[in-house]
Design a protein around this nucleic acid. Structure first.
Lengths: 170, 170
DNA sequence: CAGTTTATGTCAGCCTTGTTGACACTCCAA
DNA sequence: TTGGAGTGTCAACAAGGCTGACATAAACTG
């Protein structure tokens, strides 16, 4: 780590494109792009009493209906207390329904209600509009590269969750 | 928005790759990847008394030494009260130095101290290691696509900030 | 010069969303 | 029957956003 700012560039091989400057630009691109990515749903949520945490819960429940609390916990990477606070409000507001498991009655299976689905739709429409525009501007090859790099950036467990959701959705 | 889940796929043109399912996968990829992206610096920061907000401030001061408070405010997109809380601790901890402007004495120009640079290096090394691995695995074409899409996702002002930093760094 | 605007700092208070620790309940499995 | 897993909940706390209000100094403007 003490070999300076061109640690990866001096090799002179096919990894020349990995200068520290390129990597720094990659970081900054992630930072600025993530802001854009969340901006539209955030605006909608601000008017309701909800935040990004609610959005995430709604998104993943909508994506995998009947998922258990524990499953959701792993996907979201927060503590159960944190998730529970969010779920409690969503359930009492009638956006999410919690059903006791049929086989294992300790488990709660989570579903969106009609209202929940409506909000999910509204939020993801807003988010997708931006993504759609970005994908269209960038073109299919760029999108493929985008996805390849993002997948490579994930932690292995997250990559597994991602792959699982991906196959279930196709 | 009521035209269902294949709103963009039914056109049958070159935008076929923009199905809502593709877009949803894009969202989820962003979510999981961003978690990975911040994970390593977060681990380092947890041991100090600092958080992600400190990281961001240190990063951009290191990137554009002598930047003003107002400039940083625009880049980070937070309120001055929020930024000030972070800057105050960084300055009193001797990681950041604040100099009164030469021309305009109302402005404060921000610089990293030697200690600040050391922490910045440590944090960005951790972050770059992951990015480097991801870029290497994905290859140059994928990286180009990654950057193209991210740039297209940004708000216009953010894209301007990004471009400005990019040219200053090269 | 007087008045306004700009750049910055700071105080106080609020919200969301994360954390830990503790405890209770239900139920499955050995 | 006992241990452990899955869940819910209470309390307390911290980070880091936010708004509103106010202060100061410097720069700009008529």
């Amino acid at each position: 780590m003490a070999d300076g700012r061109h640690s990866s560039a001096v090799r002179g091989d096919s990894l020349l494109f990995l200068t520290d400057e390129q990597l720094r630009q990659g970081s900054e691109a992630m930072f600025f792009a993530y802001r854009g990515f969340t901006a539209d749903p955030d605006r909608i949520l601000a008017d309701l009493t909800y935040g990004r945490a609610h959005h995430r819960a709604i998104h993943f429940i909508g994506r995998a209906p009947g998922t258990t609390v524990n499953n959701l916990l792993n996907i979201l990477g927060v503590t159960k207390q944190s998730l529970n606070r969010v779920l409690r409000t969503l359930i009492s507001d009638g956006l999410v329904q919690s059903k006791v498991g049929r086989n294992d009655k300790r488990e709660r299976h989570l579903y969106l209600t009609d209202d929940g689905r409506a909000l999910e739709q509204q939020l993801s429409d807003a988010q997708r509009a931006r993504l759609r525009a970005a994908f269209r501007d960038a073109g299919p090859e760029a999108v493929a590269g985008f996805r390849t790099v993002l997948e490579a950036m994930m932690d292995p467990e997250m990559r597994a969750s991602y792959a699982k959701l991906r196959e279930s959705g196709t």
